[in-house]
Write a protein that binds this DNA or RNA. Structure first.
Length: 563
RNA sequence: CGGGACGUAGCACAGCUUGGUAGUGCACUUGCUUCGGGAGCAAGGGGUCGCGUGUUCAAAUCACGUCGUCCCGACCA
């Protein structure tokens, strides 16, 4: 492509509305443009990269034996009613009505439609297994779009669905997808971890996430410095040390006016956080429950939800807390409370600690479980922390941020049961089909790659994804020999099927160099003064050195580079 | 949905307190000089000051409303 007569622009300054490196670099390089909150235009360069990402995934999916289809985005609302997900997904679903008043939604994910598609084919066990996938726009009305392309309301997802007769079949289908995902992300040059995660709204038996390791990711990845353990913090189990109890001291009241917060207690009374507990009142399926953890631990709501098999888990509002604890916010505690008390296992290891007294301005000190109060149940309900013991090998835990670029689910029979997708087995009995679902967010891949590959000058695309593998820059377009030589080179490379960018704009050299760096072209060929000796300069985006090569060496050099 | 901020040219912003002819830098056009890492000088083009209502002789500026955007939180497939 020749820049002179193309749609091409770059911005010199950061865009105010973008809060991430990738959002800014992609905007400044003219690849994307925000249109509304969480809704983007893909402009020519950005769309080219997106297509390359799609192509890589498509090839791997096809090799894994999946077949590509395309489902609609406009879907009758009743289909989600049937599967029970209309209420579950709730206001995250864009809803609208047609001219006759019939309710439709814009598809946020497509398990239901794929089940319907499958039901046209599946009658007998002989019709299984198979796998269908699509690249298609999803709509999710996120409460808070963020980080450029990372949390958006309209995005393209590759979603695949496997259909098997039993769990053994699912295991095979699932592994094929995991392998295809690994191959895809490897080819894109993304550094990622596979972590176990919560199944969330999807439900089912197992969820694993492919997390690109970056600074800004929204997810906290729990990793071990010794073994391969990797988990999303929301499901990572915690190991609790054996209790080493001190001699029990006499419990007493401590007058603590206006210090309902942990930090104030630490500051004002010189009590360390591992000698205090945090008691929070939660509404779990609308029932109040007191949840206790050590003061320096965080409560994990996903674990709470699982513990109670609950639909909703939320912090109780202030009024409820004050009614139940008979005190101002900050003074709730387990003694004399009427609710169930769920305590983290770590509470068992504590002695002579501090709790809220359910009385405004008062705490109890030297409290001990068993002697001073009873709990309904001990459970693992806290978040694991850096430095904790690895639940797998006992090694040391550390955290990384991650961007969820892919997710694989073993759904089991959740959707096939809800929607009646059954097959007849060899013994003439009906069984629900066993499903898996597998997603990759292509826009997130793009953002993750930029997050992982950039410097002060701009994006550094991996060769496989760069919008153009090579750029030819003419230093001075007014010098005939430079222009004509560059034009000739452009033709030679193009004729060999190389996608090459010719910067023939009437701009100063600095502008062109900076633009080519910003948009991240991996190889730059500069046609300048040295053309008088029949030589051009060659520079790689990720290296500083410039080498001179003869004109007739350009084609083999480029071919070798792009290989 | 709760808390906070912002909305003035394609982009980034000033002007608003104290109402009186719409500004700056980058980008854009033309000319001259320059020409290998975002040039200089000069002359230009481009704005319903988010939208609405009100106060006023007069509103970018004050008041109220509304829409949008961003940040923190809640939520999150």
């Amino acid at each position: 492509m020749k820049l002179k007569s193309s749609y091409f622009f770059t911005l010199r300054e950061n865009v105010k509305d973008e809060d991430s490196v990738s959002g800014n670099l992609l905007s400044r390089s003219g690849m994307i443009k925000k249109n509304s909150s969480g809704i983007y235009m893909y402009l020519p360069l950005g769309y080219k990269v997106l297509k390359k990402i799609e192509q890589i995934i498509r090839k791997e999916m096809n090799e894994a034996g999946a077949q590509e289809v395309l489902m609609p985005s406009l879907i009758p609302e009743e289909i989600y009613e049937q599967s029970g997900r209309r209420a579950l997904i709730g206001s995250s679903m864009f809803a609208l009505k047609d001219r006759f008043g019939k309710p439709f939604v814009l598809g946020p994910t497509h398990e239901e439609l794929f089940v319907m598609a499958a039901s046209h084919h599946v009658k007998s066990y002989k019709d299984l297994p198979f796998n269908l996938y699509q690249f298609q726009t999803k709509f999710r009305d996120e409460p808070r779009p963020r980080f450029g392309l990372i949390r958006v309301r309209e995005f393209i997802m590759k979603d695949a669905y496997s259909f098997d007769k039993d769990l053994d079949g699912l295991a095979i289908s699932y592994q094929k997808m995991v392998d295809a995902y690994k191959a895809s992300f490897d080819r894109m040059g993304i550094r990622y971890k596979i972590v176990t995660a919560d199944t969330g709204v999807m439900g089912g038996l197992l969820s694993e996430e492919f997390q690109a390791v970056t600074d800004i990711g929204e997810d906290r990845l729990v990793l071990c410095d010794r073994c391969e353990f990797a988990s999303n913090i929301e499901v990572s189990p915690c190991v609790t040390d054996e209790p080493v109890l001190e001699d029990l001291r006499e419990m007493s009241e401590l007058y603590t006016p206006n210090v309902g917060k942990i930090k104030d207690l630490v500051d004002n009374y010189q009590i360390s956080e591992d000698k205090m507990t945090k008691s929070m009142i939660y509404m779990i399926d609308k029932q109040a429950v007191l949840v206790m953890v050590r003061a320096d631990d965080e409560i994990n709501e996903v674990k709470l939800q699982k513990l109670f098999s609950a639909k909703t888990v939320e912090l109780a509002n202030n009024e409820v807390v004050e009614t139940i604890s008979h005190a101002k916010i900050g003074y709730a505690g387990p003694i004399g409370i009427s609710t169930k008390i769920i305590a983290d296992h770590r509470i068992k290891t504590m002695s002579n600690f501090l709790i809220g007294a359910n009385k405004t301005d008062v705490h109890f000190q030297n409290v001990n479980v068993g002697r001073d109060f009873q709990v309904t149940q001990f459970a693992d309900i806290r978040n694991i922390k850096p430095g904790d013991k690895c639940p797998n090998c006992g090694g040391k835990i550390y955290f990384n941020n991650g961007i969820e670029i892919g997710n694989t689910f073993k759904l089991g029979d959740k959707y096939s049961k809800a929607l009646g997708l059954e097959y007849l087995d060899a013994d003439n009995t009906l069984h629900p089909v066993v499903m898996g679902s597998y997603g990759i967010g292509t826009g997130r891949c793009l953002a993750a790659i930029v997050e992982q590959n950039h410097d002060d000058y701009g994006i550094i695309w991996p060769k496989a994804l760069a919008p153009y593998g090579v750029a030819i820059v003419v230093i001075n377009t007014k010098i005939e020999l430079q222009s004509s030589s560059a034009e000739t080179l452009y033709k030679i490379l193009s004729r060999e099927g190389i996608d090459v960018l010719l910067d023939d704009r009437d701009e100063r050299a600095g502008v062109k160099f900076n633009d080519m760096d910003l948009i991240g072209i991996p190889l730059r060929i500069t046609v300048g003064k040295t053309i008088d000796q029949g030589k051009v300069e060659v520079k790689l985006r990720n290296e500083k050195e410039i080498q001179l090569i003869d004109l007739d060496q350009v084609l083999p050099f480029v071919q070798n580079f792009l290989k």
